[in-house]
Amino acid sequence: MTNPWLLIPIFLMNWSGWKAVSIHSFRPRTSAGASAGKADTLPERFGPGAFGFGKLAKPEQVAALDIDVRPDGTGLPAGSGTVAAGAVLFSAKCAACHGSGGTGGPNGALVVTTAVPGKRPAKVIGNYWPYATTVFDYVRRAMPFNEPGSLTNGEVYALTAFLLYSNKLIDEKTILNAKTLPAIRMPAQPSYVPDDRKGGPEIR
């Protein structure tokens, strides 16, 4: 057994850390879990830069990596794309895996197709994705599968336009850019709910 007296200085050190937490820069939080116990354990003096390990990131370093896009359009780049240009790109770079027009191939369908009796409809962009911005973000970071990161921003806008058009979410004249893309409302979005499981006896 651990001698309880040995634990006291550690406990006090932690406590003083929590109590004196700066209000603006950091605030260690305890876990909501049943047996956290592994929370932040550093004493108070370890605020920002206390260790001094690592180098301050230059804005251009961050910009080179920071390609994520949020539903409100934050992170979308300049440029634009049309449905027609996207259709040409899709045939050349995507149809081999996703089928002609995205109707289904070895790596799955991307567009809503006519329901087959007795078969569950595939979860695709038009019936399952809650935000149109996610299409842009994902295609830009991960597609085409065999050449990730090879598309220009204009090509990604064009492919996104073609996929949204094929799912009947925009008309063929729509030009996608940083302003028009986040304005698109997706049919599945209202269905999304946060996790309601919470442990305990109830099965959810």
Partner: peptide, 14 residues
């Protein structure tokens, strides 16, 4: 390294 340690080092904002 605990992520909390890095959070402190970079000064994660409220």
């Amino acid at each position: 390294v605990r992520l909390s340690t890095l959070f402190r080092e970079v000064g994660v904002r409220e």
